[in-house]
Design a protein around this nucleic acid. Structure first.
Lengths: 352, 352
DNA sequence: CTGAAAGCGCTTACAG
DNA sequence: CTGAAAGCGCTTACAG
């Protein structure tokens, strides 16, 4: 026996294979009576469609598009790098994934890209989202044509995407607060927080989580007025210098532009410790961590997120229940748990 | 056109489909000349076998066995739980995964289980390993019959497994040291380290990494003589009480038996802070973290490790190059970044 | 509204 | 040592 096939269903229902197929795949043009009989047989036998066989006969290829912010942002560069590393493997699973660059934080740019995808053979989209309601019509049109959509790193309007893949930024901010508080070892302190812009949902969330925990559990730590940097390194630099002058015991940058922070830290007169926590592991932040300029990096694991987006889009396209996925927890790097510099060395160690 | 099929290869090589198949799958009984021609065609066309089609025609089912330690260990319970959550999904991909319990730390028990698997239709094994060389003959026999083997959580003899899936325990120990050191905020301290047994590779590695970083970067922190607990809660309890009497500023348990530690901490007179770092997030350690008895939990993410084992075994069975896999980095939990209690709530939030 | 038949890319007897 | 043919579980014209 084994698992029942559609032939089994057809026989049990007393109809032809073609008819069984029509109802199972809701292709229409079937008598109500036949529909009933087939559905009963499906239920009785516990039939489940063999997606692999279907794909083979259709020569199906899944086309996924990743909508990522353009520009030099090193974090998204890691995403693109992982995606191109994966290309060969995906090809074996009949998946083609393509990256399209969108002007950063541009709702209209994103909207246009979504509109352009309408009417194409794109099966799924993973987009670094924005909360703008202007996106909703384009997203709805895509959904209506059967294109699956997930938010990546930053969410899309909740009702117009199938899932969100990214960390909980409030939680990330709380975590930063906890570790920063612990690092004060019971001593009082004052922390300077930097953000690109509190208009960005993730930045605002991190700051909210951070403030909440500091206020509740570390009352001896004062939070200095937040400085907005537009994620520009020069502004981050100046803000860090200011923090030093204010005798801050800690700096937490919830946003980007860390090269400016690192520069400021290395210029700083070598007096007392200043605890530094930032986000996203990239080349320059990694070096600063190794050098002891930065204490902690909270990282999103872009490679993990990409893999998850792929798995999810695939499952959504196949219309099957989503697989159990371990929760995404931001990774905390200190200078002692940094991953190998490249995948090659990883595989040498890992797979013998 | 699209990707070339074996028909294309056969035509290009000027042989029949069957012959092309014979050489591509090295089934033997082919003239040297034919082999050459086919291989040339394969190279010229860039042919790659369609595994899905092959599996369909063979009605292939992958059978994987997970060899996990028996007993009440909550960490391995999480592994089993994830595996059973995955069962339905795996079934759709023609994978049956089964758990077999082995007496903990018993090389002979593991060896016997491996021997019993010889001659069965098991395609792959993920085993929580031991370093014993006694395992080598059984592993070699399995390998010779084509069974793929990976070490999980704790490695097998390196030359007798295809890969190791688990964290780097030296790195985990270093990370614990860094965070514990930071939490002293520049103050001096004395730390009590507990281990089940330094004979266990992972425990020894963690302790080594920990000691290295403390000695190098936190000279003001003294490491008290290590206490071995056999991972027994009562012994852990007594050791923690002793640490309190010695005015330890911190406790790091590299092993298990944390319920004893937690009991000791909650009995302790409410004087000064004692920083506590332990391994593995399970029900009781989670509650202790939330209650503030424990400061940090370093976790291995058994669910992530299981998924990786599955992916890896599958790729190994198919004989294709291993997919790029993001490095496993131990997850650090504070009380602020704990995952939802169960997958249900996770999916509600995550996938709308 | 229904059914018979060829084909997706492979494997497996079976005949030569 | 080689090849023709049926079958894996599905989809897609095509005929009725």
């Amino acid at each position: 026996m084994g698992t029942p096939t559609l032939s089994d269903v057809a026989r049990a229902a007393g109809v032809s294979y073609a008819t069984a197929d029509r109802v199972v795949n809701s292709r229409g043009n079937v008598a109500a009576k036949s529909i009933e009989k087939v559905n009963a047989a499906v239920a009785a036998l516990g039939y489940v469609r063999n997606v692999a066989a279907a794909n083979l006969s259709k020569r199906r290829i899944y086309r996924f598009v990743f909508l990522l912010p353009a520009g030099p942002n090193a974090f998204f560069a890691r995403m693109r790098a992982h995606l191109s590393l994966m290309a060969d493997h995906l090809a074996q699973d009949n998946i083609r994934a393509e990256v399209q660059e969108i002007a950063a934080f541009s709702a209209s740019g994103l909207e246009q890209a979504l509109r352009d995808l309408h009417g194409t053979d794109c099966d799924g989209i993973a987009a670094v989202g924005l909360h703008s309601r202007d996106l909703e019509p384009a997203l709805a049109a895509l959904r209506d044509q059967g294109t699956q959509i997930v938010g990546l790193v930053s969410d899309l309007p909740r009702d117009h995407r199938a899932a969100y893949i990214g960390i909980d930024n409030v939680m990330a901010g709380r975590t930063a607060a906890r570790l920063l508080g612990m690092a004060h070892g019971g001593n009082p302190g004052r922390v300077q927080v930097l953000a690109g812009s509190l208009d960005a949902g993730d930045h605002a969330d991190r700051f909210a989580g951070f403030s909440e925990v500091i206020a509740r559990d570390f009352p001896a730590i004062e939070i200095l007025p937040l400085i907005e940097t537009r994620d520009q390194a020069s502004k981050v630099h100046d803000a860090a210098m200011l923090a030093t002058r204010l005798a801050a015991t800690a700096i937490y940058n919830v946003g980007a532009g860390n090269s400016g922070l690192i520069r400021a830290l290395s210029e700083r007169p070598g007096d007392g410790r200043c605890i530094c926590i930032i986000h996203e592991l990239v080349d320059h932040s990694r070096r600063a961590l190794e050098a002891g300029l930065i204490d902690l990096i909270i990282d999103q694991r872009p490679d993990v997120e990409i893999n998850r987006a792929l798995t999810l889009l695939r499952a959504l396209c196949d219309g099957r229940p989503l697989p159990p996925m371990p929760e995404l927890v931001p990774t905390i790097y200190v200078r002692d748990n940094l991953p190998g510099q490249d995948m090659t060395s990883f595989f040498e160690g890992q797979a013998q």
